[in-house]
């Protein structure tokens, strides 16, 4: 069988919540009454990804990059959106 992560379109590093969100999205896109085959494939892949053996196998032996260096940098970037900046600091950014 093909890589279940590939079928779901999530990275091997995706956590449970991300996988579930993606699964629900795909189920909405391919409902069982309209796309039974695709739904069955998605459902089986989801079951496999949730299988601790499959997921551990990926965590232990998969040497493909779980994410890119760019995404790592992006994640480490200070989040200027998360907290509101003081207006004084904000306006000081107008200085060249």
């Amino acid at each position: 069988m093909n890589d279940p992560y590939q079928i779901l379109g999530v990275s091997h590093a995706a956590d449970e919540a991300a996988v579930r969100a993606r699964y629900l999205e795909l189920v909405r896109q391919f409902p069982p009454d309209r796309e039974p085959d695709r739904f069955a494939e998605i459902h089986e892949a989801y079951d496999r990804v949730r299988d601790p053996v499959v997921s551990l196998e990926h965590r232990l032996f998969d040497v493909s990059a779980p994410f890119t260096f760019e995404s790592l940098i992006a994640d480490a970037r200070p989040d200027v959106r998360s907290s509101r900046l003081p207006t004084e600091l904000l306006l000081s950014l107008a200085r060249p």
């Binding site: 970037r77 200027v80 959106r81 306006l91 950014l93």
Partner: peptide, 14 residues
């Protein structure tokens, strides 16, 4: 300057 601030924020947010 409003544009300058906006661009700085966008750059900082990636």
């Amino acid at each position: 300057p409003a544009n300058q601030i906006a661009r700085t924020l966008q750059a900082a947010a990636g």
